[in-house]
Structures are given as structure tokens and as C-alpha cells.
Simulated scan of single mutants.
Amino acid sequence: MKRYGSVIGLGPDAIAEYKRLHADVWPGVLKMISACHIRNYSIFLKEPENLLFSYFEYHGSDFEADMKRMADDPETQRWWDVCMPLQRPLDTRAEGEWWANMEEVFHHD
């Protein structure tokens, strides 16, 4: 199992809509997240900076293949089409990232 954390901005006018969408995530999207071996997935919002922090645990054996499977899923693509315009990627993110990956510097079970 590997843990992942990432961060992205959220437009100030998008907070209510983002919360509404994530209060009722489409069942097909949730099913795909689970099918791609993602567990314990959470998104946190920090206001007034309007930063979203994502955390999940990956329990599979081929992260790249599972992320491609998710990205190729038509329902997930439609979900992203709704959510991505609300998000504000960080200028400091690495090339190819939408959500900026974060380094884990501490963990305690």
C-alpha cells in the first residue's frame, strides 16, 4: 500500500458547487475509484486560501495502469469535465500534473 497526497486550488465562486458535487458523487465514478485499487480517499478544503487537499491509499500493483484505466473511463471523464473547470491548478505543479503531488514527510499509525 502506498499513500498519496496532492493539492489544487479552487475558485472562490466554485466552493458551493464543488461541495454539492462531492456530497453526491456519481456511483460509476465511485465504482471506478474502487476498481482502480484506491481506498481511504478523502478531499479536504482549506478556506480562505481555497486549497483542496486530496489523500488516498493505493492497494494495487500497477499504479500507472490503474490511473490510465480511470482516465479512459467515459463516466470518469464526464465527472472531470464537470469538476475541472472549478479547480485552479498551482503554478508550481510539475509538468503533466493537474493536482500537484505532495511529498509525505511524516506518518504515524
Rank of each mutant, 00 (worst) to 15 (best):
R88Y: 02
Y18V: 11
E64C: 04
P48S: 03
S61R: 14
E75W: 01
E95M: 10
E95V: 15
S54V: 05
E64L: 14
V82M: 11
D109V: 13
G9Q: 06
I38G: 00
R3Q: 07
S42V: 15
R88Q: 12
L86M: 10
H22T: 12
R39E: 14
T92E: 07
S61A: 05
V25D: 06
L90G: 05
M102F: 02
D81R: 15
A65F: 01
V82E: 05
E64S: 13
P85Y: 03
N101P: 07
Y18W: 08
C83K: 06
T76A: 05
R39S: 15
E17M: 10
E17K: 15
C36I: 09
L86I: 08
P12F: 06
M70V: 12
K31H: 06
F106N: 04
V29E: 01
P74M: 06
A65D: 03
M1I: 13
I33D: 01
S54Q: 13
G9E: 04
H37C: 12
W98I: 13
G5P: 00
Y55A: 05
W99T: 03
M1K: 11
F53L: 15
R78Y: 01
A14V: 09
W99C: 02
K2S: 08
Y4N: 03
S6A: 09
L86Q: 04
G28T: 09
P12L: 08
P74V: 12
E57L: 10
W98A: 00
E103W: 00
G28K: 14
M67H: 02
A16P: 02
P74G: 04
S61D: 08
G28L: 13
T76K: 08
M102Q: 14
C36Q: 05
W99A: 01
A65H: 08
D66G: 06
P89Q: 06
E17S: 13
Y18C: 06
Y41L: 09
